[in-house]
Amino acid sequence: MAAIPRGFDTVAAARHLVRKDPTLKPWIRKLGPLEAPISWKQSFDTADALARSILYQQLSGKAAATIVGRVETAIGGPRLSGAALDSVSDEVLRACGVSGAKTRALRDLVARQAAGEIPSYRQLVHLSDDVIIDRLTAVRGIGRWTAEMLLMFRLGRPDVLPADDLGVRKGAQRVDGAEVMLTPKQLIARSEAWGPYRTYAAMMLWRIADLQL
């Protein structure tokens, strides 16, 4: 498969959603277009990205950043590659504040990268969304949501909908003026009009959910 371009035209995405979804249209016009994340242009190490996702799980941003900083100091650099993580013991990771469950997840990540099961950045750009999700969620501690975030914010894939995300569901509820949030299955059905720009729709719904009205 040829390399899949990273990122997409956010202006075209906004126009598409305005045209296809009358209820979303006034929100987009009110809030204005979203800028393309700078991360779409940056290369990255897949193991590093997944390791950081594991370390940030179920923690506040500040607490997680502190632990990540300690791990970076322990491995002697800012890149949490498989080889770097493999150079420190479980005891060192625990001393950095990494829980036992997260330590086991990191060890599984390291083992899978060593076995060639974790696609590199150069490999990821040739893989479909579904294949990437299947490959990444095989790692202990990596769920579908984490894989979707990598697709959206690292690879810039245009048609990803994190249907389980509370913020996306809350944004859709506000747009529709509904009393209750849609279930993930209902949200997927609701999103048919947004394709092939579900990523942009999700980014807009997060923004709408965060608005103080």
Score class of each variant (00 low, 15 high):
212 Q>K: 15
132 I>G: 00
134 D>Y: 02
40 W>M: 09
155 L>H: 11
68 V>M: 06
151 L>Q: 06
201 A>K: 05
16 H>M: 07
56 Y>F: 09
152 M>C: 02
184 P>F: 13
17 L>R: 12
108 D>E: 09
61 G>H: 11
157 R>K: 12
4 I>N: 02
141 G>E: 03
9 D>C: 08
180 V>T: 13
77 G>F: 11
192 E>N: 07
130 D>I: 02
134 D>C: 09
113 Q>V: 07
199 T>S: 13
1 M>C: 01
26 P>N: 08
27 W>G: 09
78 P>M: 08
58 Q>S: 11
147 A>P: 12
189 A>Y: 00
167 G>Y: 12
55 L>H: 05
182 L>G: 02
163 A>G: 09
174 R>H: 01
14 A>P: 01
58 Q>T: 10
3 A>W: 02
127 L>M: 14
91 E>T: 07
37 P>R: 15
195 G>H: 15
5 P>D: 07
6 R>N: 02
128 S>W: 03
180 V>D: 07
119 P>T: 04
68 V>T: 04
66 T>W: 06
83 A>K: 15
33 P>T: 07
86 D>C: 01
158 P>S: 08
148 E>I: 09
23 T>F: 04
122 R>Y: 01
49 A>C: 13
152 M>G: 02
197 Y>Q: 06
91 E>M: 01
30 K>H: 10
206 W>K: 08
148 E>C: 08
148 E>H: 05
190 R>P: 02
170 K>I: 11
27 W>A: 11
126 H>N: 01
32 G>Y: 10
202 A>Y: 11
209 A>E: 15
68 V>N: 01
93 L>I: 01
93 L>K: 00
132 I>Y: 00
47 A>I: 06
92 V>T: 12
21 D>L: 14
13 A>E: 04
9 D>H: 14
